[in-house]
Write a protein that binds this DNA or RNA. Sequence first.
DNA 1: TCTCAACTGTACCCATGGTGCAGTCTCCCC
DNA 2: GGGGAGACTGCACCATGGGTACAGTTGAGA
Lengths: 211, 211
Amino acid sequence: MGTVESLAKARPSPARTRMLDVALAAILSKGFDATTIEEIVAGAEVTRSGFFYHFRDKNQLARALLERYVEEDDRILDDVFRRGHELSDDPLQALLISLRLFAELFGDIPNGHPGCMVATICYQERLFDAEVRTLNREATLGWRRRFLGELEGVARRYPPRDAADLSDLADMISTAVEGGIVMAKATGDPALLPRQILLLRSYFKLLFTPA
Amino acid sequence: MGTVESLAKARPSPARTRMLDVALAAILSKGFDATTIEEIVAGAEVTRSGFFYHFRDKNQLARALLERYVEEDDRILDDVFRRGHELSDDPLQALLISLRLFAELFGDIPNGHPGCMVATICYQERLFDAEVRTLNREATLGWRRRFLGELEGVARRYPPRDAADLSDLADMISTAVEGGIVMAKATGDPALLPRQILLLRSYFKLLFTPA
DNA sequence: TCTCAACTGTACCCATGGTGCAGTCTCCCC
DNA sequence: GGGGAGACTGCACCATGGGTACAGTTGAGA
């Protein structure tokens, strides 16, 4: 009976995509529970029945939303680091360039970053089933793995000035993004996020640049 | 008719305090909307009527919760920086000591930091009225002011190695805490938060220590 | 003894998540 | 051009939860 899911993956129906879009925006601004099926179907111009045709319940919606979010996120990060390495053969320079591109990306979002799905789920974890929580955890571990790979390349050529665990440094990128998103929302200043990424860049530059 | 509020502030009733305690824990783990009045009154061992006696509605509860959270937070930060300055006359050393104390504080919380009320509100901002949102914004600006004061003291004696805006550096502390909380929750590793604070400390040390 | 803060109990309204199922429309394949 | 299937619509129904309204109870202090 996986027909709906598998077909949806192969060629996602426009209605389903619209529902995910509306749901994402609503969930990031008022939370999962407060986002009603009614407003999702109204915004996506389908009916309640249409919603339950595509998703068994709200939890399935959350799962689909997170999966799509993580995939998109991976594509963006792939692109950023690919371009970084295209622009410099030096691993440190590539990292610094990638971080700058990352900051620019955030700066280019019209009304600021709308919020991270992973963070939303963490702050409402009791609402979700084990599968969603596992997916969420794996997303963060994926970030760690990716950033750690970059940092290991850097550390091989440039021994860091201060004894710092590379995994922790990898997490520091995710931390700056997650914290930056929260602080940008809290202060009402969307540019806070890219500025925090550039500060992190400044730290990596200081840490790995030979004296 | 401000009798309830003013008396509650002077000598908060134990039932009210219990409700705030239960509500905070619930809200930080499942969000504001999903936290039912039913579970709050059950956990605090009062009745539904008791809830509505102390709070006009859920929004008033949020306001009371945030106020209490910010006051407690201020007390903790006052203490951390007071101890930092007691232990060293040098502003940089005092800051580094304070950050270490801050990290230790986070490390000492049994099941990790339960979550920041300010972040919860940001990620569900559409649920709250203008007053709560203003209070939330002011809390973050208060952090900025406090940390900026410390950093100005440091920068007067130790010119930073890299041109960095002191306000952004001040926000970096809040960013590390907020991001660290999210990442600690997401990875399931409570110790991630204190480790990120220590990484931030390492940055400040590098940035301000004369060559 | 009186008063008042701090509750309790009951009844009621509306919105929302979720179930169940029959009907419709449109495209594609035979 | 007939039929099946995917992608929906429409409707009826239930339980839960926020919120309103209001009358009654209890215990400590003046």
